[in-house]
Design a protein around this nucleic acid. Structure first.
Lengths: 212, 212
DNA sequence: GTCTATATACAGATAGAC
DNA sequence: GTCTATCTGTATATAGAC
């Protein structure tokens, strides 16, 4: 099926080519994406791609450096001060789940796992800028809260990772496996609320049965 | 390099062939595993494989039905009664992390994500028998604890998934991405203890700064 | 710079010789 | 049932025509 603009291909510079190729890579995966697919979509020439990026791996590396870094940049911003810890966790939780469930990140995540042997450096960058950074950012916030006496002392680095792990949880896995669609806004809010709740108070274990 | 038994290939029946092929699939991934790799390792003939399993997909499906089901069977056993909730969570947490970090499950997990479009039925089975079952088993335990008044009421299904999510967390992701080796026993124990701790009591948020 | 054709490599699947 | 050779399709990468 041709595109709706009536014509054929899209005239492209380097930027548009990267953007279009990124969409295809993140949608279909690295191996399943053929150079011809990209040509067909963007209208560029094969020789152009090879002279610009060397080979398929070079093209993909250029894309990830650009797109994934951009998508994950929201995690780097830690303008989370001025809120209660609960509000901060809720805000950060929403930011996390929105990023994780975005088409770009779902694609990056899948490709990172699939092609980690082929792109070890990219995978390292992805982890450090994404899940690792999220856990570290949270850890820093928790250390501060600890020093203010808002929470009990504990391993904040681990706790940060626990929060990130809960936000992903089985939901993210199901989406990654194609077993269900990404959650809508309501479901995301319920998830984040549940995670924040458990993170702050646990299940309020009382050790032995006791009426309340 | 030949094997240490001095000879060459291994004489195989159907069982040994499945076992050997499973090891290769789970180690290298589905796409990267060549039929010739399996032949080379097992010593069988190509025609034998194709007459037995039809094609590569059939061989792989037979393997997963056997091996993954076996590896995950430990999650189905819920002989966890007679312990405190904390001990039960600790036991179950160890069982979970040991399974997740086993070579077979790491391979299955990676292949499930990589090839979910090719094997939707297998992926469904994997999820239901693995992460889904783990969350559901925990949920049932939590419901019981709730009825005994040991914990506050809440969404036990979600809480079960949260526990599973924390056990995986960034650690499992790092291993999946090839960024680090699976944790040793000590690290696993520290992880499980930390997860159980947070799960039971959270960070004991007190809302506002207060000296203790 | 684009379009078409092709060299090359790889891997799944098949067939023949024994 | 095993070993070897081969058919076939696919996809990266290159080269030629314009």
């Amino acid at each position: 099926m041709s595109d709706a603009s009536g014509g054929a291909r899209i005239k492209v510079g380097r930027e548009q080519l990267l953007a279009a190729a990124a969409a295809i890579f993140f949608e279909q995966g690295y191996a399943a994406t053929r150079i011809d697919d990209i040509i067909e979509r963007t209208g560029g020439s094969k020789r152009n791609i090879y002279s610009e990026f060397g080979n398929k791996e070079g093209l993909f590396a250029a894309i990830v450096s650009q797109q994934a870094g951009r998508a994950l940049s929201a995690l780097a911003i830690d303008n989370l001060g001025g809120q209660s810890l609960k509000d901060m966790l809720t805000t950060f939780g929403h930011r996390l789940i929105d990023i994780y469930m975005s088409p770009v990140l779902l694609g990056v995540y899948r490709i990172a796992i699939t092609e980690c042997a082929r792109f070890p450096d990219l995978v390292r960058r992805f982890y450090d800028l994404g899940p690792g950074r999220a856990g570290a950012t949270l850890a820093a916030v928790l250390v501060a809260a600890q020093e203010r006496g808002e929470i009990r002392t504990g391993d904040c680095a681990m706790a940060g990772d626990h929060f990130v792990g809960m936000i992903r949880g089985n939901l993210h896995l199901q989406v990654m496996l194609g077993l269900r669609e990404p959650p809508d806004t309501a479901e995301r809010e319920a998830l984040v609320a549940s995670v924040v709740d458990l993170f702050l108070d646990g299940v309020e274990y009382r050790g032995t049965p006791r009426g309340r």
